[in-house]
Design a protein around this nucleic acid. Structure first.
Lengths: 128, 128
DNA sequence: ATAAAGTCTCCAGTTACTGGAATGTAAAGA
DNA sequence: TCTTTACATTCCAGTAACTGGAGACTTTAT
C-alpha cells in the first residue's frame, strides 16, 4: 500500500511516516517504476507499535530499542521491564518538578490582587 | 562589567547570556575599542529576572512579555496574574497527562514477570 | 488530453540553548 | 617588552521529533 494508506491505518501523519523511513526506523519497499514507498501489513504493525510507544512518552531511541526487543523472539521480559521502569522513574521526576512549580506559582497568584493597580507580588518575586 | 561577570552574577552561562543578547532580550552596551559587551547592574537585574521566570517554566516569549510588564510602571497586576494563571493551567494539563501515563505504565509493569522468558505484556500492549 | 490528487526529494523552521572553530583583545608573568 | 594565558568575538552546526512548503514527477479521474 502507498504511504497515505499506511499513515491512515497507523494513525500517524504522512510526514511522520516518511520521517520514520528517513531515520531508518520503518523502511518500506519501493515501487521500482514510481519510486513510491510500498508498505506491507508488517510495516503498518511496526508503525502502530511506534505510535503507541511514543504516546507512552518513549523517545525515538527507546522506541528503536523496544522495537528490536519486540522483533527478537528470544528476548527476556526482564529487559523490557527495565526500560519501562526507567521511563516511569523519569516521569516521576518530571511530575515532582511540575508539582512544586505549580505550588509556587499558585501561591504567587493567591498573593496577587489582580486589579488595575501596578503592585504585583508575582513580579516582585521574579525580580528578587 | 564583562559578560562572564554578568553571567556569574545572574547564575546563567556565558553562552546563554550571549544568546539573550542575540535575540534582543537583554542588549548590553558595547566597549567601542574591544567590541566586548558591557553589562550594567540593570542588565544583570534583567538577566536575573529572566532566569527566575525560566525556572518557573515561562517560555522565552512569555519572559519577554513579563519583562516588559516589569519595566512598565503603569501596568496592572491583572495582566501579570492572567499570564501566570495561564501558565498554571498548562502545567496542570501536563500533570494530568503524565499522571495517566504513569498509571498505565505501572499497570503494565505490574503485569510483567520480568524474568528470562520472552512473554511480555508490555510489548503485547504496544503491539495491539 | 487534461486536471486533480498523491508522492517524491530537499530545505528551512520550530525551542532554547550548547559546543566548537577560528580569530581578536586584555591582563599577568618573565 | 614579549609571551603566555584567559577571556572575548562571530559564525556554524547540532540537539528532538517532527512540520511546512517548494518544485518536480506519477497516478488517477474526468
Amino acid at each position: 500500500m502507498n504511504i497515505s494508506q499506511a499513515a491512515k491505518l497507523s494513525g500517524l501523519s504522512v510526514k511522520t511516516v516518511r520521517y520514520y523511513a528517513d531515520i531508518k526506523m520503518v523502511e518500506p519497499a519501493r515501487n521500482i517504476q514510481s519510486g513510491y514507498r510500498s508498505y506491507s501489513n508488517d510495516d503498518v504493525a511496526k508503525l502502530n507499535f511506534i505510535g503507541k510507544a511514543r504516546r507512552f512518552n518513549f523517545s525515538i531511541e527507546e522506541c528503536r530499542e523496544l522495537l528490536s526487543l519486540y522483533q527478537d523472539k528470544n528476548r527476556s521480559s526482564k529487559e523490557v521491564k527495565k526500560l519501562t521502569l526507567a521511563k516511569i522513574a523519569s516521569i516521576d521526576k518530571k511530575l515532582k518538578e511540575f508539582h512544586s512549580l505549580r505550588d509556587e506559582l499558585s501561591h504567587l497568584v493567591n498573593c496577587c490582587n489582580g486589579d488595575d493597580r501596578p503592585s504585583c507580588p508575582i513580579l516582585d518575586e521574579l525580580s528578587k
